[in-house]
């Protein structure tokens, strides 16, 4: 049985599932990276994902157009991002706590709307798998990377884009500046508040895509608490990635591949208790970081600190 695990078929299966599972984490974590680099810890990702997942779902259910659903999810995510910014930037509220509030609100509100508008779970037709011509025919790699729904491709394309924006544009530099040294940024005429609003809107929009990637692409359904903690994991993975988009992606892939691995372990009937198998991604993420984090990583200096103009 254990030897089954090392067959090519299983390896492809693990990698394919890993890539697919990483999608929602990736959107949410990259979005969260923007916010954290600018100095705002948004723990409410999970709540934003839930409400957006619902918004995408209901729009697709009514219009049968997944693109409209995606748009709705992004818009809802951005609105919630702005609300988060209003609370934590303008009103300078404690970021951890307001995030928990947004999470609870999203958890309850999405379910409430679902019960009132849809009543009973329904599966809809969302983004289907799109095989990329030529590339998907490649042996092994074709199946792993090039036979997914459109949002999976988008998630991995997002990584270099995020890297470019954060490292090679003035906008990115400003984001870093307000996260590292808001006072200096302010004295240079960069509006700390405006930058943080912008990053939280981006983060909210991407959390929206993350929610939609569940409700209208991966699962094509909505249900109470459909995200089941993914938003919190995404926040953790930002720390894993040390605020670097590529490392965040590695963290997302590691976490989801180990998750895929444990599902294969159970499916093949390898006698490991299911709970122990399920624990693996969580434990290995920590262990991986123990080895990776030896090099001193400094978090954005102003993270979680509201900016108060000097008096």
């Amino acid at each position: 049985m254990i030897s089954d695990l090392f067959s090519l078929n299983v390896l492809i299966g693990i990698l394919t599932s890993g890539v697919r599972l990483a999608t929602s984490y990736l959107y949410a974590a990259i979005g969260e990276t923007f916010g954290q680099i600018s100095g705002v810890l948004n723990l409410g990702v999970e709540g934003i994902m839930l409400v957006s997942a619902y918004a995408g779902y209901i729009v697709v259910l009514k219009t049968e157009d997944p693109w409209l659903g995606l748009l709705a999810a992004i818009l809802v995510g951005m609105v919630m991002g702005v609300a988060t910014a209003f609370i934590s930037v303008t009103l300078k509220a404690d970021q951890g706590i307001s995030g928990i509030g947004v999470y609870l609100f999203g958890l309850g509100f999405s379910d409430l709307l679902f019960r009132v508008t849809v009543k009973s779970p329904q599966i809809l037709k969302g983004f289907g798998d799109v095989a990329i011509p030529v590339l998907s025919d490649l042996p092994v790699i074709g199946h792993i990377f090039f036979n997914h729904n459109i949002l999976v491709y988008g998630a991995f394309l997002l990584v270099p884009v995020a890297w470019f924006v954060l490292n090679r544009t003035t906008f990115g530099l400003k984001i870093r500046a307000v996260g590292q040294n808001p006072e200096a940024a302010d004295s240079l005429g960069i509006s700390v508040a405006r930058m943080r609003y912008a990053t939280l809107m981006i983060g909210g929009g991407l959390s929206g895509v993350a929610g939609a990637s569940l409700s209208i692409a991966l699962l094509n359904m909505f249900q109470q608490n459909i995200t089941a903690g993914q938003g919190f994991i995404a926040v953790a993975l930002v720390y894993f990635g040390a605020w670097k988009p590529y490392r965040v992606m590695l963290g997302c892939l590691l976490f989801s591949m180990v998750n895929a691995l444990q599902l294969w372990i159970q499916t093949l009937g390898i006698p490991i208790p299911s709970d122990i198998a399920l624990m693996m991604p969580y434990v290995l993420t920590i262990v991986a970081l123990v080895f990776a984090a030896r090099s001193v990583v400094t978090q954005p200096a102003a993270l979680t600190k509201p900016f108060e103009r000097g008096e």
Binding site: G13, S17, R20, L21, S24, L214, L218, L219, M221, Q223, Q224, N225, I226, T227, A228, G229, Q230, N259, A260, L263, W264, Q266, T267, G269, S274, D275, L278
Partner: peptide
């Protein structure tokens, strides 16, 4: 047979089915 240790985690159940 696969157990997900979660009555709510539809995403994990879907991946279990995929697997």
């Amino acid at each position: 047979k696969t157990f997900t240790n979660d009555f709510n985690n539809a995403a994990l159940m879907s991946q279990a089915a995929q697997t």
